[in-house]
Design a protein around this nucleic acid. Sequence first.
DNA 1: TGAAATGTTGGGGCG
DNA 2: ACGCCCCAACATTTC
Length: 477
Amino acid sequence: MSTALVLLRRDLRLEDNPALHAACAEHERVLPVYIHAPGEDAPWQQGAASRWWLHHSLQALDDALAKQQGRLCIARGETLGVTRALIREFNASAVYWNRRYEPAAIASDTKLKAGLREDGIAVESRSGNLWCEPWQIATDQGDPYRVFTPFWRKLRTQLQPDEPLPAARAREWAQAHGSLPSSALGLLPKIAWDAGFDAAWRPGEAGAAEMLDIFADDALDNYKTVRDLPARHGTSRLSPHLHFGEITPRQIHYRLHAYASRDRNRHQPDLEPYLRELAWREFAHHLLYHFPNTPDENFNPRFERFRWAVDNPDAIRRWRRGQTGIPLVDAGMRELWTTGWMHNRVRMIAASWLTKNLRQHWRHGARWFWDTLVDADLANNTLGWQWVAGCGADAAPYFRVFNPHTQAARFDPEAIYLKRWLPELAALPAKLLLEPWRDPAALAARGYPAPMADVSATRQTALAAWQQLASARSGEN
DNA sequence: TGAAATGTTGGGGCG
DNA sequence: ACGCCCCAACATTTC
C-alpha cells in the first residue's frame, strides 16, 4: 500500500488543494500533517493574532477531516526531522505540499526537499495559493514587474474563471497516534483578549466560503464605492482566509463569476474592481519573491538617506493604542486591537499618520501590524507599508499625505465608524467627531486625548523632508 | 488608492 | 442694456 504525506502549511483547506488532491489521486493512503516550526519563519515568526487564527483554522481542518474518518496530524519540531520520523512510521514514499513564497519559507522548503530527495523520497510541490507563480510572469524584457498596472494588464489576459478542484478525498486517511491536540501548540493567548476576534471571525474553510457568500450577496454590486466606507462591510474581508489558504483566488473568481452571471436578465455586477484587489495580492507575492529583502529594507534605495524623525517610543505607543487624538486613526487602531483587522482605507490613513505626520520609520508600523493582524502576510504587509511610506515599488509619491479629518468627512460622513470604535465620544454630535478642533473641551471631558500633532504643520514637515530627498537626487546628478 | 493652492469659467446681482 | 464684480463650482497645478 503506497502512502503519501501532505504537509499543510498555508493551505488549510480540502477543496481546491492541488497537493492534497494529487496525493489522494496517486496514493492509497494519505496522511495530512501540520508541523509547527515557528523558528523556521525567523525573523518573521507569526504574531499573536495570526497564532489565534491558526489555532482555530487547524481545529476546523481537523473537524472537516473527521467527517471523512480522517484526522489532521499535528506535530511540532524541526520540519525535516519530523517529516522523516513520520515517513518511517508510515513507510511513506512521497511528500506533497503547496508552495510558499516568503524568503524563510523558501529556504526551509528547499532544505526539506534536498533532505528528502537524499532519502529517496518523492517530493511533489504544487502551486496552490496564487493565480500565477511569481516566476511565470515577466515583462517583455524578462524582468519582474515593478509597477502594478502593467503587471495587472499582463495577468488579466491569463485569467479565466477556472473550475476549482473538488474536495480532496483519500481512499484511506492515515492516522498518527502521536498527533498533538492543537491546544498543545500554545497558540491561544494566555490572557483572554480574543473575545472580539471570536465575534468577528470564523476561521476555517467553511467560514471562508460563508464570508464569500456574504460578500457576493451584500457588497459585490456596489463594491467600487462601498469598499471605501469603513462603517460598512463593503470589502470581502477574505484576507485572513486567503492568508491561511482556506480559500483560493481561483475559487473566489469562479464563484463570483458564477454569481455575477447567474441570471442573464438581471444586472450583472462588474467583477473587475475586486479582481484587481486580488491582483494586488498577487503583485505583493511577485515582489516579495523577486525582492526578498524588502520586508526589512526599502525597495527604493534612495530612502536609505531619508531623514525619518528620531524614533519616538511614546508616539509609537500612542499610535498603537489608538490614543493619538486623531479620531479616524484611533478608531482604526482600536478596530485592529479588538478584532485583529482594520478596514483597508483606514490602514492607509493610520499608516500615513505614523510614517508621514509622525515621520516614524515604516518598520515600526509593519511590526505592529504583523503582530496584531489576523491577516498578517509578509508579502501584503511589506507592500502596504512601503507603498504608504513612499519607498516601495509603485509607491504613493511621498507628498501624498492623507488628511485624516478630510478622509473621515468623505468616507464616514455620519461618523458611524468613529462612534463605533470611540465609544467615549459616541454621544457627541457627528460633526464634532469629524471636526474635533471645534470643541476640544468636550472631547477632553470624555477622556479623549488632545491631538498628538498638528495635522497641517506635520504635513508641511513631511513635504519638506520629501523635498530634501528630491534635491539630494538632483544634487547627485 | 491626496491636499491645498491656484486658475478658469459662468451665472447673477447690481450700479 | 451693459459691464463690472463676486463667488461658487470646477479644473489644473504644485507639493
